[in-house]
Design a protein around this nucleic acid. Structure first.
Lengths: 96, 96
DNA sequence: TCGGCATTTCGCTAATCTCCGAAATTACGT
DNA sequence: ACGTAATTTCGGAGATTAGCGAAATGCCGA
């Protein structure tokens, strides 16, 4: 619970989770039908901060369990882990 | 959403919210039937940190909307704002 | 009115977080 | 094998947060 809340306690990270709910509308290129998710570079571009900063944010969300990542060649694709996000929401509802 | 998550991103504050779910079992004295809540002093005692630190934590939870406070004489009683906590849980469920 | 108690506010230090650029890593194409 | 591109890791600067004790505030009883 603590780690999850810490992961959500940042504007940029909240935005990333939001964008990944519907990649088609939030990322210029047509990546909406990409089941693997969105690659780090596009997220960085959208977030408007450095690659290293975005990488750190993605790592936090990953460790908290909100994201899944797939390395495909030189790209790493990120997508929401809907099951674990829902599980967290349930936990907030029952434990908080 | 951001402010709420920031408020929850701290061990002590999460504990305080937990304790206030059932004051009778978490605070020695018989304050379980006190509708006004638990006074700051008891919370400080339970948290094991200084009065000023606990006061700051309570202020954060109050500003985030998770607590309500009532000043009664020289004591300030704190209790959970269940409606707003539930509303936050709903928002997590729908927006996250 | 005065002294004492509960709480908050004020300064300050230590720890944590955020962000960056440089360097390292990994993969691709030639 | 070499050069380039995507991403991560490293090291450090600046901002935010957590914690404390001292001082201030508000309230009560003598």
């Amino acid at each position: 619970m603590l780690d999850e809340c810490k992961a959500l306690a940042n504007e940029t990270r909240l935005s990333i989770l939001e964008w990944l709910k519907d990649p088609a509308t939030h990322f210029d290129d047509r990546v909406g039908d990409e089941p693997l998710g969105v690659c780090a570079g596009l997220i960085q571009q959208r977030a408007g901060c450095s690659a290293s900063t975005v990488s750190a944010h993605l790592a936090v969300l990953l460790r908290a369990g909100f994201l899944q990542a797939t390395r495909r060649g030189q790209w790493t694709y990120y997508r929401r882990d809907e099951a674990r996000i829902r599980a967290f929401a349930e936990r907030v509802h029952h434990d908080l």
